[in-house]
Design a binder for these strands. Structure first.
Lengths: 199, 199
DNA sequence: TGTACCATGTAATTGGTTACATGATTAC
DNA sequence: GTAATCATGTAACCAATTACATGGTACA
């Protein structure tokens, strides 16, 4: 079984979904840390079906291609549960941007600054988005978010991780920018820039 | 050019290194967010050489295989610099553990607890390690860490990211554990468990 | 008339991991 | 003796991305 397989099981354990539906969910990363495209999803669903971890109904439609709607089987649920509680195989989380930072000493501070400014904006935006999602979920789900056996709670837990991740990324970008600024305006005892000091 | 190629350029821009040396550095992730094994490194070095981005001296040794020590070329440095300031292609950072969390609602709270406890310890350890490294670097490098055109500063910047990442991961694990505990000891107004409250 | 959405697949390519292959030296 | 370190490579496999392939409906 591949990790993608478990991702798909995790989705069909929640809802009946077609391959197309799954592909739409996974265009944005599910749980904020996993994506896949339809070209990976369709063959994987076929594999899951051969292993009897999912079944599907074939639903003919008027004026649209026939679709297959997948459901998890008891065997599938058991396999999913076994995987969930298994300690994860720890692979490095690669981050191209941090790798760039590793060689940041080779470039002009001004260019580095522009780069980090962009990245800061990107992560600020995502953070804002996730925080809005949190507010929305809290309002919409209410008590469901306190039941750890509800899918809503699990999604909320991954959302928390997304928020923490982005918040930390933002803070790090700001730290690097401050370092770069220190080098760009050489020590003139920077006074009263407090306007941009939005903390 | 592949991202790995730039990682190698970033290393040989700092020191003269053999393929073996590079493989040793990259067993642990460089910049805390990139690894590679020798089977990937040797062919990539050959490719970089064909493109004249690196050169090597062949160094025969007594009682050891001849080694090739690589250096970056001017062309290589130019290519590296151009890549560094280029905005990164944004790929999702996959995290199998967060994906497991997405399906955590399907399993027993006790099993989930054990899982998160393990993960918490793991990230606490890494955090401690990184923090020790920071102290060590600060003592050893001193003023070099204030010069943004020094490799030491760049490494320090990536270390900061590693620390932030792990600190946030720890906080998130603790949050999930608190949630799980809330469900495990049903609302008995948890009093005086303060012994295990190590904050 | 062209773009977006619904719907499902296969093929080619790239990047990364694991395994295969060889062989001397040093330290326990 | 046996494991770890030094030293370099190739081959096989797997996962993920990008491209190829088809075709109707809805909407601006």
């Amino acid at each position: 079984m591949t990790t993608l397989g478990y991702a798909l099981l995790g989705l069909v354990a929640r809802h009946k979904l077609s391959g197309y539906d799954i592909a739409s969910w996974m265009r944005d990363p599910i749980g904020f840390f996993w994506t896949a495209s339809h070209s990976q999803i369709y063959p994987e669903l076929a594999r899951l079906k051969r292993q009897r971890l999912v079944t599907h109904e074939t639903i003919p439609q008027q004026g649209r291609p026939t679709k297959k709607v997948y459901t998890i089987t008891d065997k599938g649920r058991a396999v999913l549960q076994a995987w969930v509680v298994e300690p994860p195989s720890e692979r490095v989380s690669r981050d191209e941007f941090v790798l760039k930072t590793f060689s940041l000493w080779t470039v002009e501070p001004q260019a580095a600054r522009a780069l980090f400014q962009m990245q800061l904006e990107l992560h600020k935006q995502r953070l804002q988005l996730y925080q809005d999602m949190r507010v929305y979920e809290e309002e919409k789900r209410g008590d469901e978010l306190r039941r750890i056996d509800s899918p809503a709670w699990a999604s909320y837990a991954t959302l928390q991780r997304g928020i923490g991740y982005e918040r930390e990324y933002v803070a790090w970008c700001e730290w690097v920018l401050a370092e770069l600024d220190r080098a760009i305006n050489p020590t003139k005892k920077r006074v009263a820039i407090s306007k941009s000091k939005r903390k």
